[in-house]
Design a protein around this nucleic acid. Structure first.
Length: 424
RNA sequence: GGAAGGUUGCCAGAGCGGACGAAUGGGGCGGCCUCGAAAGCCGUUGUGGCCUCCGGGUCACCAUGGGUUCGAAUCCCAUACCUUCCGCCA
């Protein structure tokens, strides 16, 4: 969530920044008004508590001295204040809860250099590589949901039998390819990122920290019986890994990676772009993530983008980098770049990584802090992450791109050590 | 799933209704001593909210949430987590 103190001290700037997203600002206005009310309530409540404390100590002293009548009188006095305190506290708590509810729904402030724009169509393309729309042969223009199903690498029908539509099942060489991609994604980041295998079912508060809750509950799977949520990305457990902790500045940035399944209900996404592996409810992904001091964040952000891009470049895939404009920025994002690969069979660009800087938005929710070297006190961390390798879409673009006229798929050089073969 | 015990500051650990934000020891930091170090001695050492005439004042936090009381780390209730044993299990 955004910094309430910033709302208090520089309301105009916060308002102007959020306005770039093109959202309704009435919640922000309410927050500012309620916060003022909250502060006056707790100031009064605290002075009431102070008086109760002093009176109670008097009672103790009077009783020790055997002056019981006087003690009873003071106790009665204190009890009256107690009632007033109770009322003030209840009201203050109610207002605070209201402020928090609103604050959790207000999106992050876009970074100053985020491009202007209202939606996806305004996102500038920063970089295109290895892409020639006319350079693909007929054999490459076949969508994977046709030839990969025929070859027995992808079995959508039986997956649907087991779990419904938008679940995929990979088989034989198709499954091996997915596993190879995971290993490839992990190995290329193992130089700096600690490998972690986190739980993939998490408490509600963990989903709140990263921003999935309360606003986007319909997008996630929930296990009612145990009140646990299936993670939509490893970003969720990794961001909360150090929640409530105070880290040393000297240890920053802290880099982590995780291979996990990811679960997404994709509510409202039915219909478009859901053929084959384009959009599935469950998929594997290698995520890289970092905790950084604010000054370190831009460099770490660039590093994550560089790694995500290089991973697809080294697989010989046409790719591009898209700069997400203010109107298209995700709720928790401060600045974001998407890496997209071109799938010639599907005939479209597929988002395979969203490299994002969250500033202190998630860290404040999660309670991630650090102690600056040589300073007293703490500061809120910054979090950043991106997919190092999202399996299904990379899988799809890869088999379509490297499909040969004879129907076999040439395994890119970089992946051969993992698959132990040159063709599928 | 059942039973028992536990959860206090950076760590260990005392406190079991009033002067407790919390004894004591360890650790960290600063100082004295020393050529330097060890030992010893002295001091210091949590987080956050609000107000501020920027000197400070004040409130909250002893797993979490309720309750009792003039007053709760201390009493009561519920929950979570941890440990051990039993059961079940990849």
């Amino acid at each position: 969530m955004i910094d309430l103190r910033l709302v208090r001290n520089d309301y105009g700037a916060v308002r102007a920044s959020l306005a770039r997203r093109g959202i309704d600002l009435s919640e922000l206005e309410q927050v500012a008004a309620l916060d003022e009310r909250h502060r006056s309530l707790i100031t009064e409540r605290d002075s009431m508590r102070h008086e109760i404390k002093e009176l109670s100590q008097q009672v103790g002293r009077l009783k020790r001295d055997g002056r019981h009548d006087e003690a009873d009188a003071v106790a009665a006095e204190s009890r009256m204040r107690g009632e007033r305190e109770k009322a003030l506290a209840a009201e203050a708590d109610a207002v605070a809860a209201e402020v928090r509810d609103l604050l959790l729904r207000i999106p992050n402030l876009p970074a100053a250099d985020t491009p202007d724009g209202v939606d996806e169509s305004d996102n500038p393309v920063l970089w295109v590589e290895n892409f020639d729309p006319d350079g693909y042969g007929e054999h490459q223009r076949v969508p994977h949901w046709e030839f990969a199903v025929e070859a027995g690498w992808l079995d959508m029908e039986r997956a649907a039998k087991l779990s419904g539509s938008m679940f995929a099942m990979l088989r034989g060489p198709g499954a091996s390819l997915a596993r190879a991609l995971v290993q490839y994604g992990l190995d290329r980041n193992a130089d700096r990122y600690e490998e972690i295998r986190p739980p993939t079912l998490v408490h509600s508060e963990v989903m709140v920290s990263t921003g999935q809750l309360p606003k986007f509950a319909d997008d996630a799977y929930w296990l009612e019986r145990d009140d646990l949520w299936a993670i939509p990305t490893a970003e969720v457990p990794l961001t909360s890994l150090a929640s409530g902790e105070i880290l040393d500045e000297a240890d920053l940035p802290i880099r982590m990676m995780a291979h996990t399944p990811c679960y997404r209900r994709e509510a409202g996404a039915a219909g478009r772009d859901t053929r084959g592996l384009l959009r599935v409810h469950e998929f594997d992904k290698v995520e890289i993530l970092a905790y950084a001091a604010p000054e370190q964040a831009p460099a770490v952000h660039a590093e994550i983008l560089e790694r995500a891009t290089a991973a697809v470049a080294d697989l010989g895939l046409a790719h591009r980098i898209v700069d997400i404009c203010a109107g298209d920025l995700g709720q928790a994002h401060h600045r974001s770049w998407d890496v997209e690969v071109y799938a010639p069979g599907a005939g479209q660009w597929l988002e395979v990584s969203s490299c994002s800087w969250y500033s202190d938005y998630q860290a404040r929710r999660a309670g991630l802090r650090y102690r600056p070297t040589g300073e007293k006190g703490t500061r809120v961390l910054h979090t950043l992450n991106g997919s190092a390798l999202a399996v299904p879409r990379v899988w799809a673009a890869l088999v379509e791109t490297h499909r040969r006229p004879d129907g076999a798929v040439a395994v890119p050089e970089a992946l051969r050590p993992y698959l132990g073969r040159d063709v599928l």
